[in-house]
Amino acid sequence: MSQTQTNQAAISKEEAAWMFQKMLEIRHFEDRVHEIFGTGVLPGFVHLYAGEEAIAVGLCSHLDDNDYITSTHRGHGHCIAKGCDLDGMMAEIYGKATGLCKGKGGSMHIADVEKGMLGANGIVGGGFPLAVGAGLTHKLKKTGGVAVCFFGDGANNHGTFHEGINMAAIWNLPVIFVAENNGFAEATPFHYASSCKSIADRAIGYDIPGETVDGKDVVAVREAAQRAVERARNGEGPTLIECVTYRNYGHFEGDAQTYKGEEKVKHLNDLDAIKKFYTYLTEQGIMTEEELDKMDEDVRRDVDRAVEFAEKSPHPLPEQLLEDVYVSYKTDGGAVS
């Protein structure tokens, strides 16, 4: 499979600004969640996407609200890149009534179907068939839309990987499978758990294109994504893209990360995706340092506002416990309760 290098072809200022903005939103959102989690006020499990921004943003730069994505337990970045509201996301993580899922899903289940975001997912490997189903709808209803399935290197060994990709291939569905290979599934290294040199190699088995890109390079991800999205929209079927990346934080908040090695320092510095894009944009003369720094300040403020919104929001009311189990019953259908 080919190793794609960053093509120096310029991107427009407008596109660049959108991508940089979304990457900053993800980074600052996650850094704040990390901070707040440390104070003990956030309930539940939280898996942070910081470090992997270039993947969600590179892909979603080609999508609009009609395109679907499926996500993972590490879903905040996918949500932000797909246009989910920061206030509603933060409130969801706090379990508040104003959250995108009314506080009933939490970090691992943030969803916004109107934005084409089919949910973070608590089940590893859950996204493959879900993306296939969304792709099937696109094909049958001739919407021209695509479905993107983000998944981890750990999920690449789940049975649903095979079932999902094979079906997308035989039915020629507009689905793009995007591996986020951050080297670890919890504490288990990719190379231990996977009998393959790269995830992209596995595309051969399904007779679809597969390629590996530098998942820290948003321009490279965007280019690979463009090829895949075009193929999908043209009715040429699925593509598998492997993005090599690293997560800045632990598997979840509270992980001592003893399995990580020296490489982690480099990833936080020279290899950082946002630094890389910043340098690229300024060196190419696409945006100025002042413009980018101003965006950084603005995004920090947006995230502060989201936290404030979440903190001030009300808790869900008791009656909401029984709502939304079924479409057709107001409560739980007369079950014992």
């Binding site: 009534a97 899922c101 009314k102 939490g106 869900p316 416990l321 739980d332 259908g333």
Partner: peptide, 20 residues
């Protein structure tokens, strides 16, 4: 008599999980 959870999935919000 039975005292059980209601016939719903487990909610995330602490305020709801506590009454679940």
């Amino acid at each position: 008599k039975m005292v059980t959870a209601p016939h719903t999935p487990v909610p995330f919000a602490p305020s709801l999980e506590d009454i679940y």
